[in-house]
Amino acid sequence: MEDVRQDILVVDDDAAIAELVADTLRHAGMGALVRFDGESGWEAFRDGSFDLVVLDIMMPGLDGFELCARIRRASRVPVIFLSAKDEESDKVLGLMTGADDYVVKPFMPRELVARVRSCLRRASYAREEAASAPLACRGLEVDPRTRVARLHGIALALTPKEFDMLAMLLGAQGRPVGTRELYEGVWREDFLPASANSVMVHIRHLRAKLAAVDSDQVFIETMWGVGYKIAP
C-alpha cells in the first residue's frame, strides 16, 4: 500500500501546526492539503477525494466534532483527531463522533505518521473484505468474486463499469455516493467536468436493465447535488 500515494486532508485553525502536520505527512511520502477552518475543510472534503482526514477540535464556527460527524454521514474515510484537549471525556466523545484515532498535542511526528499509516491499513483491509463479500438488497444480488449480478434470480447482462457502479452503490448500504466518488472508483481516473455525464449515462443504462426485470421498484435514486444511492 505504501507504493501508492495517500492524500490526506489536514484541518486546523493553527496555521503553524497545520503546516507542520502537512510537512510531516509529505516527508513520509503522502499528499497533504491544508484548510484552516471547519467550513473550508468541509468544502474541500466534499469537493475532493481523500484517503484520511486529520482534524483539530477547537475551531471557530464549525468545530472538529461537527465536521467529523458530517464526514462520517457522507463517507467511511478514516478520521484522526489531533487536539490539545487531553481529557478522557474529549477522547471518548471524539471516538463516539466517528473518529478512528485521537492524538494529543504536542505530538511526535513519527508517532503521527505511524498512526496515520495504521488507520490507512485498517481502512484498506476493510475495503478488501467488503469488496469480496456478496451484496444484496430487495431481490438484487451482486457477487464481486464471481462478478455476477442477479435481480430476482435473473442474471443481469451488465458491462464491467455498470457492474462496478452497482457494486459501489450497494456497498454504500444506503449512503449517497457522490458523482466524483463513483467516477474515480469505477473509471480509476481523475474526475473532470465532463466525467459527470459519463456517470449519468451509465446510471441510465443500469436503471433500464433493472427495470427490464422489475419495473415496479426504483432501485437507484438520484440525490440532486450529491450523487446516487440505492433506494431503501
Rank of each mutant, 00 (worst) to 15 (best):
G153M: 03
R115N: 06
W224H: 08
A32S: 08
M59K: 13
P232F: 09
G38C: 12
A231W: 15
D216K: 15
L93D: 04
M165E: 00
R145Y: 13
V201P: 14
P78E: 02
A211C: 10
L151M: 05
E189H: 04
L82I: 09
L82M: 08
V177I: 07
L112V: 08
F45I: 07
A16Y: 10
C119T: 01
V79D: 00
A196F: 11
D23N: 13
K85E: 01
L120Q: 00
F36W: 15
L151E: 02
H152M: 10
E184M: 13
M200R: 13
H205F: 12
D190C: 11
L135D: 01
R26V: 06
L25V: 05
M59F: 15
V54G: 03
R204S: 07
T222A: 07
T24H: 04
D51L: 11
S75V: 14
D56F: 14
A167W: 03
T97W: 10
A136I: 05
V186F: 11
L182E: 02
V54Y: 02
S215N: 13
E128W: 10
L156D: 02
E184P: 04
P176F: 03
G94P: 11
G94H: 03
S49P: 02
S215A: 14
V92E: 00
V226C: 06
L166G: 04
P193L: 14
E129R: 10
A74D: 11
R26I: 07
E181V: 05
R122S: 05
G48L: 08
R150N: 02
E111P: 14
A18D: 05
N197P: 10
D86H: 15
P176H: 11
Q217W: 12
A114C: 09
I154T: 06
L55G: 02
E181L: 08
A194T: 10
P134Y: 00
S83C: 09
R46K: 11
H202E: 07
V4S: 09
A69I: 12
A131F: 11
V177M: 09
H27G: 06
L9V: 04
I220G: 04
K91I: 08
M58Q: 12
A157K: 12
L55C: 06
D56K: 11
A167D: 01
Y102M: 12
T97E: 09
H27T: 05
L156M: 06
G94I: 13
V10F: 08
E181K: 09
V53Y: 02
R5L: 04
K229W: 06
G227V: 03
L112N: 04
H205S: 07
E87N: 02
E162K: 05
P134W: 08
A99P: 01
P78M: 03
L20F: 11
F107I: 15
D14H: 15
M58Y: 06
F163L: 06
A155T: 09
L192Q: 14
L206E: 08
M96H: 04
L156P: 01
M30H: 14
A167C: 07
L156T: 00
R150Q: 07
D3S: 12
G48K: 02
R110I: 15
V148P: 15
G171R: 10
L192K: 15
A196S: 14
R188E: 01
E128I: 07
R5E: 03
Q6V: 03
A84T: 09
A155E: 09
S49L: 04
F219T: 01
L112T: 03
R35M: 12
F36L: 05
